[in-house]
């Protein structure tokens, strides 16, 4: 018997069996059902240790990118007692440059961890950035089902670094 052919046949058979066994025909197996909880469901105990507003700046991009994006010292949230897949939401609104954004962090399976909060590095056109500073409203929220718990919300000043 040629063992090389047998090894190929064995692996192919294994792939086929596992693929069918994990499918809807055998719901009890469900190998790939790891994060079946919808985002924002469940609950968690969270503590905001530092909001991401220290050194908040609108920084012009390097490498001839030309556009601006938000930068700050990352914030930190301690997470514990997670059930389901609750979500942290970092919101930012800078009306002076027509910019608002939300970043979502899924907390499922992250009990005992510390989550770093960073603004999404979205490009803002230089045509909008005409002043040297802007007011920004920054918020941190915990979503558990239909409820949103406010952990932080302040209006802060954003300096422009050209």
């Amino acid at each position: 018997m040629d063992y090389s052919d047998a090894s190929v046949a064995t692996v192919l058979a294994f792939l086929a069996v596992v693929t069918v066994a994990t499918g809807p025909l055998l719901p009890a197996v469900g190998l790939s059902a790891g994060s079946a909880h919808p985002v924002g469901s469940g609950d968690a105990a969270v503590t905001l240790e530092r909001p991401p507003v220290d050194g908040l700046e609108l920084v012009r991009g390097d490498f001839d990118a030309g556009t601006y994006h938000l930068e700050s010292t990352p914030g930190r949230v301690a997470v514990d007692d997670v059930s389901g897949n609750p979500a942290l939401k970092l919101t930012v609104d800078v009306p002076g440059i027509y910019y608002s954004d939300v970043r979502t962090y899924e907390l499922g399976g992250r009990s005992g961890e510390s989550v770093r909060l960073r603004f999404p590095a979205v490009d803002v056109s230089p045509e909008y950035v005409t002043a040297n500073r802007y007011d920004a409203t920054v918020g941190v929220w915990l979503r558990t089902g239909d409820e949103y718990d406010q952990l932080y919300q302040e209006t802060v000043t954003v300096e422009v670094r050209r």
């Binding site: 063992y3 090389s4 064995t10 692996v11 294994f14 792939l15 790939s32 059902a33 790891g34 079946a36």
Partner: peptide, 27 residues
């Protein structure tokens, strides 16, 4: 090197599949 390739290929395929399976979520 057909014979050796079958052994190597089977091993690579199996490891790749198990690695994917470990992090798979419902599609």
């Amino acid at each position: 090197r057909g014979r050796e390739a079958k052994f190597v290929g089977a091993g690579v395929a199996l490891v790749a599949f198990l690695a994917n399976l470990a992090v798979a979520t419902p599609f």
